[in-house]
């Protein structure tokens, strides 16, 4: 980054409705949907009767992130929201209604929910924001893109602060949705959201975003070459202290092995055990790092690829208790 991008607050929602560390659970298999509408209405005090589960998933994280801010929200904050598949359940229901029962009018609520900008509309509305609002949909790299665009905007002085987050939902039957995600049999499917409130101002920061780097690899590229370049993204910031590695769900065993060898002492945090696989699991990963305070400053590296191998690496720091540096 050209200037430090501070993280002032964060929140992550997991597939079991978990919003804090004591509620996080290791998933034993694909889970069922958790009803979160009441959680959301309690959090916002607003009537959320028309939004679908996907939108609720995104909102629980965004609303909590703002609630956790120590200082008042900057009314000019931008919103950058990433989602791989967007609203799946309502889209499926309209799709089937449209093609299987010709002649039936589709539900306006469902149609509105299926539109790409609706969730970011509610994110801005619940936050009281009226500034820039962008939704990025780039498969497994959707959250990374939202984060990058947010950091760019702060660096470019387009804004002082921004919400950056990601969310995805699964649909049932599980088998059908697993195929949509192209998951291996042993991979558990999940859903959830994660949000960061970013600022150019350091006051009350809990961490900072150090790098969001795009690496144009393909799946055919050598694992060691890939690992070397990914590790180079975080190496300048380690100062002799090994980082934590958060591997995304498209990082295969060979690449993970190569990467752990390329970063001596790296500690792997298998966050997917808690949230399952979904396109924006990275958002859950990064935000849930801030579930509990850190004893000392810690560097994290999150890495994931899309199915063709394009890779994005996120390096960030969680400050230790008593303020970091």
């Amino acid at each position: 980054m050209l200037i430090p991008i501070y993280i002032l607050s964060a929140a992550a929602l997991g597939p079991c409705g978990d919003i804090q560390q004591t509620e996080r659970k290791i998933l034993a298999g694909d889970v069922e949907h958790t009803i979160i509408q009441d959680t959301l209405e309690t959090l916002t005090g607003l009537d959320m009767r028309r939004v679908g589960h996907f939108c609720e998933t995104a909102l629980v994280g965004s609303v909590l992130t703002i609630k956790r801010l120590k200082n008042p929200l900057d009314p000019n904050s931008h919103v950058y929201f990433g989602t791989g598949l967007g609203e799946v359940q309502k889209t499926m229901s309209i799709f089937k209604q449209t093609l299987d029962s010709e002649g039936d009018a589709v539900s306006p609520y469902s149609f509105i929910n299926s539109i790409g900008s609706t969730t970011s509309f509610y994110i801005a509305k619940t936050a009281g924001l009226k500034s820039r609002s962008i939704t990025a949909c780039q498969d497994e790299l959707s959250f990374e893109w939202a984060l990058k665009l947010a950091c760019n905007a702060i660096e470019d002085k387009d804004t002082n602060s921004a919400m950056a987050g990601g969310a995805d939902e699964f649909s049932v039957p599980h088998k059908e949705h697993r195929r949509r995600l192209l998951l291996d049999d042993e991979q558990i499917m999940g859903e959830g959201s994660g949000w960061l409130y970013l600022s150019g101002e350091r006051d009350s920061a809990i961490g900072e975003v150090i790098e969001v780097r795009y690496l144009p690899f393909t799946g055919a590229d050598d694992a060691h070459k890939w690992a070397r370049e990914v590790s180079n993204v975080c190496k300048p910031y380690l100062a002799g202290k090994p980082p934590f590695l958060l591997p995304g769900f498209r990082v295969n065993a060979g690449r993970l092995d190569a990467l752990t060898k390329a970063i001596p002492g790296v500690k792997v945090r298998r966050y997917l055990d808690y949230c399952g696989c979904f396109h924006t699991a990275a958002a859950f990963a990064v935000a849930s790092v801030f579930d509990t305070p850190h004893k000392s400053d810690s560097i994290y590296l999150h890495v994931n690829s899309d199915i063709e191998g394009r890779t994005m690496a996120v390096v960030f720091k969680a400050y230790g208790i008593g303020g970091g540096g």
């Binding site: 598949l85 799946v88 949909c137 498969d139 394009r310």
Partner: peptide, 17 residues
């Protein structure tokens, strides 16, 4: 299953590939 393998991001990724 409708929409399989056709996320919004696939078209741009396909052109780039």
């Amino acid at each position: 299953p409708p929409l399989s393998g056709r996320s919004v991001g696939r078209v741009a990724a396909g052109i780039a590939k």
